[in-house]
Each structure stands twice: as C-alpha cells, then as structure tokens.
Design a protein around this nucleic acid. Structure first.
Lengths: 341, 341
DNA sequence: CAATTTTTGGCAATCGCTTGCCACCGTGTT
DNA sequence: AACACGGTGGCAAGCGATTGCCAAAAATTG
C-alpha cells in the first residue's frame, strides 16, 4: 500500500518531503542524516511526511554531493568457487548491518580484469575488498594510497589485510601424515600467480624438512575440480603415499579420479585438502582438510574497511588480522596399506 | 602508470577533459556516449584527452542526470545456497558483457527483506532480477508495473519470468523409480512459501497417480543440508522405498544421515534430488537428480531484462522462458533390496 | 530586562554529467 | 545570389541531494 500523495508519477524527492512538512530541503536532509541537528519536533514532522510519501533518498544524488556512495565493492577471482561463497556471505552480512550495499565483481582470476574493475569502481564505491588478488604489490599499494582497500589472503606491506592462516596448519597436517607412517608427501600446487599457493608451498617445504619427510611437488593446477584428474595422475606417478593439495576443489577432483582408476583412498594414497569448502564433508571419502574461517574473514575485512571509512572507528584501526585455521581429520587420510599402526 | 596531467588531487572530471581537448563539456559527453553525434576528428581528440587523463565518468553523476544507473540488482534468497551460485555467475557474466554492474542482495528467504531491498534499490538500479521470490503475486505485479523486473523460478501473470522446468522431469524421475520396482514414493517437501516447491509437489502428485504409485509427503523442510537428518528420519518412517526430494541440499543431508544410521542407499532406499548442484556428483553415493540449467537461467533473465530496458531490443521481447531440465541418473537410485531386476 | 550565547532552519552554491535548444558553418538547390 | 538544410558544437538548465554560511529565534546569564 504505497500512498505517494505527491503523485506526479515520479518517485518523491527531498523537495516533496520539504513541501509537505513545510520546511526547507536542507532541513529535511539534516533531519534524515544528522538527527541531532534539528529539533525533535521538526524532525518528527519531517519523518512523518517522509514516510507518508514513502520517500527514499536517491543514493546517486547523495553520492554526488557528499562523495560517499554507501557501497563497497568485493572483487573475487571466481564467484563460483565455493571457497568464496562464505566470504561473500560474510561481507554481505556485515555490510548490510552497517547499511552498505555490496558490489560484487568476478575478476576471472586475472590481474587485468581486476585493474579494469578498480578503475570503474573507484568512483562508485567507498572502498574495496580484494580477495586473493593477482595484482602486484606495487599496484596494490598504489590503489590503497588513493582508495580505502582491504585485501583478503594477499599480504601486501602497508595495506590492511586479513589472512586466513592456512600455512600454519600445514605443519600439523604433515605431522598427522607422518604419524600415520607416511614418509614421502607430494604437494599439489595451485595457480602459479597465487600468493596463498606460494605461502602454502613454503610452509610445506619448511615443515616437511623439519619432519624429515621426502617431498615432491607437482603443478601448477587450476583451482577447479576438473583439474583433479591430471593432478591425481601426476600424484600417482610421484610415488608418494600422501598428498597435501592446494585446495579442496582440486582435492575433490582427485578423489573422483582415484575412484575411477580404482585407487583406494586412504589405503593406497592419503589426501589432505585446504579450506574445508562446502562438499568436503560429504564427498567420498570425506576429506581431511585444513578448515578456514572464511565467513569470519569476510566480516573482519568489512570491519577493517569500515574502520578506515568512518572516523569514529579510527581508533580500532587494525592493519592486519590473522585468522587461525585447524586441521579437520576425516576419511581421506590413513596409514598406507590400510593397516592401523 | 597513471598520468593524471590535470593533477589537482581529485579524479579528473568531464570538465578537465573538455578543457584539454578544447571543447565544451557537452561535446565530450556526446563523443563518449553518443559517438555518431560528433565529427570523427573531434571525437578522436576527445578520446585522446580522456585517456591521457585516465578519465572515468562518474556513474553517479551520470545516473543522476540521465536516470540510467547502469546497475541491475539481483535478489537471491540465500547467497550461500549453491543452487543460486550458478545463477549469480550467469547474471554476472551477462551483465558484464553489456557493461552493467551487478548489485547482489541476500533476502534471507523473507518477503519483508525483499520489499525493503526493493524500496532501496528502486532508485539505484535500472532493473531487478528476483530469484524464487517469496512475495505475493500482487506485490510482484505492482513492482513490475513501476520498475523493470524479471523473476526466476517464480511465475507471476504479467511479469517476465524464466522458469527452470524441474516439474517436467519429475514424471521422468517417477518412471525411473517405478521401473526399478518401487511402488511407494515419498515427496520430501521444501519451504512452505516456495513457489517451486508447490509446483514440484503438484507434478509429483499428478505423475504418481498416473503411474499408480502409492505416495507420502513429508515436510516442509528448510533447504539446507542440516535439514537432511530430520527429513531422512521422517522418510524412513514413511515406509516408502524411494524419495523425491525438493532439492539436492536436503537430499545430500539425507544421504549423510542414512550413512550414519547404517541405511544403505540405494539398496534400502533410493533418493532423487533436484537441481544438480555442486556436490551432487561427488557425494556418496553420487546423487540421481534433476539437472537444472541454472547459469543459463541467469543469462536468459538478464537478456530479458535488458530487452525491457533497451528500446533497441524491444522486438525480442519475450515474456516467458521455460528452460528444460533432465534426469541425471547416478548412484543414489536402484532397485529395492539391491537385486538388479 | 538587556546582552550574549546557543539552537534551529533557510539560502544558495555545488557535486559531475546529460540533453533540449539554438547558432553557426558549409553545401546544395533554385 | 538568396535560401534551405543537415551536420556540429556550445549554452545553460536541470537531476536530487549535501553543506558552509548566515540570520532569526530561543535560551541563558548578569
């Protein structure tokens, strides 16, 4: 039941409200966005008028004159990668709670697309969250210098970042494998340009040498289940009895391939994934993986970004958040040969 | 390498470009958005100037004066439901191809949230796609009357719609079950307010009576894997040997519960899901399901919406698209007792 | 009760771009 | 030679808000 009293066909503007309330537009503007600035009586009159007209301020007009857009852009490498689902959900929720709108952009795992998107969005958003950006440190720093920016899973000196500390759990995963009796472990690498892949690989190298494990590395592979087939075949050829895989998507693809080839998991080969995405708990066998607090990452990133925007929160101005992860053991890891030890 | 020649600190405006090119702002505006309107020579000069300044028109200013926002809102009941992810991907891709921006909103499966979002977005988007809307027919018609709207999986008379015709394949699924020897089939219902649930249930009723199958209905259940446990227990109590489940999320949850309880699928009970979401192919056992062309649905919806917006395309003005589905048989269906027949 | 301070509300400029209307220019027509 | 006309480009009026500045009104003070 929309009663647009001033029904000239177009949606009501601030002027219509002002007229109905018998005040100037400036007063309406203040009453609505800066309550303390007008007396309670006038404010009330204005609010009544506004709701009678079902008035909604034009975000564009507001953006134009105030410079604030009320929107935050989220740049994600691939919207269909389940890993990002919960990040998107996290940012979405946190933004809505603060009255912001989310602009979602799929950057197709390309630095160029990221750059192009940034160019366009710079003027139409108050800030940007970039997830697993492929851009160079210099470029990201440059962006951060002119526009509020928070990165997720991409550390850049001087740029506020939230990091899901998957590498920290890789040691734990390797210990888990070692204690099951594995001596040789393969790292199945993700995309070449990926920062998190580099970090995971480095942690793998370090921990495995500490544990005295023999290691092999294969890849890079695209982070999709379809890469699993090649990865699985390569893993088999590597001669290791266990794999740590860049992410669950590839790991699940490998599981499928192993099933096809009659390779038993975990009797013939153990698999550890990363991220604990949707599906990791119900694939066959369920995947042992490093669980990541992805939704929290989204929320924290927004909190940090809003902190940059709103001078109120300037105090709580963290520049870095490192979120802990943990190993979730399921059915895809076990002793080689299947004998409990 | 950003060379903002007119570097006063702020991003360049159309005025800067005009000055550099030695023309009026109106000419710049036309050169950029209405190429035929200026001579080739001036246009070129302007384009050079614009790119030298790295000029990007302000979408807000443009929206304010022209009324066109270049944005389309996508209202989705739950951004973390994998079913919607390919829709999001589809709209995203199609929009980007047409130079539009996507505004993603999670409506939390609530008609109220939908209404509120619409109120806000009406002025900040050129059109809206609503997926599986919970609003009433009247409300949706009212929205469509004042704002370009396309619904997905929610038929409303007079409102352009794209429907994924899952009900059409339910008959096929029932035949499949009947031919495996099942005589009693349970429908595991989705949310009460859901249009697609109603349609699927109706198709289930009709086809099952045609096939002379005994039927039971249980539910409603929330479309999440976590509902699967209750649903599985209820299904067992129903005494049927097979289930058709509102969607794959619930179906996968049921699979997990059955495994916990030691109920074998498909020997003890057969399961058919709907949608063929991410995960349906690698759960245990892989799910027989009705495959839906979700990404295509997103693309088609955008095409229809853009058709409403752009007078150019007014001719290709379809009001309804029905996308066919098909049954994908995997491991979760089989003869009762496990004996091939 | 006059003087001073604090509130409250209005005026008008401004944000960056679009677009209707008009003027000018160079050709083509009669 | 006078006139008409299509092609170009400029002028200026918005679009719907915000906000600095100022004046009137109200509250406080001595």
């Amino acid at each position: 039941m929309t009663l647009e009293t001033t029904d000239n066909g177009k949606p009501p503007t601030i002027r219509d409200v002002a007229a109905l309330a018998g005040v100037a537009t400036s007063t309406v503007s203040r009453a609505l966005s800066n309550p303390g600035r007008v007396s309670a009586r006038t404010r009330e009159r204005i609010e009544t008028a506004a709701s009678r007209l079902n008035y909604v301020p034009s975000s564009h007009a507001r953006a134009l004159s105030s410079g604030r857009t009320g929107a935050v852009a989220l740049l994600v490498p691939d919207v269909t990668n389940p890993f990002y689902f919960d990040i998107i959900r996290g940012t979405q929720n946190q933004l809505k709670a603060s009255g912001y709108t989310q602009l979602l952009v799929d950057t197709e795992e390309s630095a160029d697309v990221e750059r192009e998107a940034l160019r366009k969005l710079r003027s139409s958003s108050d800030g940007v969250i970039m997830v697993a950006s492929r851009m160079s440190d210099e470029q990201l720093s440059a962006v951060a210098a002119t526009h509020p920016l928070v990165t997720i899973n991409r550390g850049v000196p001087g740029v506020p970042t939230v990091i899901i500390d998957t590498p920290a759990s890789i040691g734990q995963a390797l210990e888990h494998l070692a204690s099951l009796g594995h001596h040789s472990v393969t790292y199945v690498a993700g995309p070449a340009g990926s920062w998190s892949n580099a970090k995971r690989m480095a942690a793998f190298d370090e921990s495995s040498s500490q544990l005295g494990l023999r290691t092999v590395k294969i890849g890079p592979f695209s982070p999709k289940t379809t890469s699993g087939a090649v990865a699985a075949d390569a893993a088999l050829r590597s001669g290791s009895t266990a794999c740590i895989v860049y992410n669950d998507l590839i790991a699940i693809g490998m599981l499928q391939r192993f099933a096809e080839r009659g390779v038993r998991v975990p009797e013939d080969v153990s698999i550890v994934g990363c991220d604990d995405i949707f599906g990791a708990d119900f694939c066959n066998p369920p995947l042992t993986t490093i669980t990541a607090p992805t939704e929290q990452a989204g929320r924290v990133a927004i909190t940090m970004l809003l902190g940059q925007l709103d001078p109120m929160h300037r105090n709580s101005n963290r520049r870095l958040a490192v979120l802990p992860t943990y190993l979730t053991v399921r059915g895809s890891t076990g002793p080689f040969g299947g004998s409990a030890q």
